[in-house]
């Protein structure tokens, strides 16, 4: 399951996305971007330049009408669990992106980022976006910004964090309650938004957790497994052509 055998903690947060259930309503992406203050511009149709923490990819079976079929694949950051480093953390010259070995979450420290974009190049899943412009919200939309997540500025990289500010909140709450902060459970925004229950999140190291069980399902696969980046985001599909496309990357 995980490429990283020497975990400092007993927690490895991961996600399973059931493509058989996903109807592509994209509520997960809206919830994610709302929760994490992801900015928007007047033209969001250039997908090489826009910022999306949860991005959708189109999978097609390559056949003609009426045998044609397609599926949507929601893609957060995969928080790769390759030994020592994720591809992005390995190349960062300033330690602006690191993997928290107690949780497995690959985080971003925006003020440290120097905008070299090595991590964008290194990420095989295009999970990172670069801020080509300063973020602006038309008045009065700044009122809806979430104070738990800092806004990012021009020149830095950003990406999905598994809503780790929610983890921090849950840990704080546990400490106040006198409980073990390392055993908390929390739910990222995309997971709680999904109306079909297609996204499941939890501790991959807990064999009793739903996410761990699903990750071992016969329908489970990861994207570009041959790269041995050990993504902690698994996908489920019963369709062979969908599973086959997983080897081709995103």
């Amino acid at each position: 399951m995980s490429g990283h055998e020497e975990h400092k903690g007993g927690v490895r947060y991961g996600m399973v996305i059931d493509l058989d259930k996903c109807t592509g309503c994209m509520a997960c992406a809206i919830a994610c971007h709302q929760e994490n203050n992801v900015s928007f511009r007047t033209d969001e149709t250039d997908k090489t330049r826009n910022i999306a923490w949860m991005r959708f990819y189109l999978l097609e079976n390559g056949k003609d009408y009426p045998e044609y079929s397609f599926a949507y694949l929601p893609r957060p950051c995969f928080h790769c669990d390759a030994p020592h480093h994720a591809p992005c953390t390995f190349v960062c010259p300033v330690n602006a992106t690191q993997r928290d070995e107690r949780t497995g979450i690959v985080n971003m420290i925006y003020p440290r980022c120097i905008g070299c974009r090595y991590c964008m190049v290194a990420c095989p899943y295009h999970a990172r976006s670069f801020n080509w412009w300063d973020p602006k919200w038309p008045s009065p939309m700044e009122e809806m910004l979430n104070p738990e997540v800092s806004t990012r500025m021009r020149g830095v990289i950003e990406k999905c964090t598994f809503c780790h500010h929610r983890l921090n909140r849950a840990r704080d709450k546990a400490r106040i309650a006198g409980e073990d902060p390392d055993k908390v459970e929390y739910t990222p925004a995309c997971v709680e938004a999904c109306p079909t229950g297609a996204i499941v999140f939890g501790n991959l190291l807990d064999p009793e957790s739903e996410v761990a069980k699903l990750a071992k399902s016969s329908r489970a696969f990861t994207i570009s497994a041959k790269l041995e980046t050990y993504p902690k985001v698994y996908y489920l599909s019963s369709k062979p052509w969908v599973r086959k496309l997983a080897d081709k990357g995103l």
Binding site: M26, Q34, E35, M144, N146, P147, E192, A193, P195
Partner: peptide, 14 residues
């Protein structure tokens, strides 16, 4: 300030 909307048992639509 309202910052975020979530659904109940049913999740939420876009």
């Amino acid at each position: 300030r309202a910052v975020y909307a979530r659904g109940g048992d049913w999740g939420i639509c876009s």
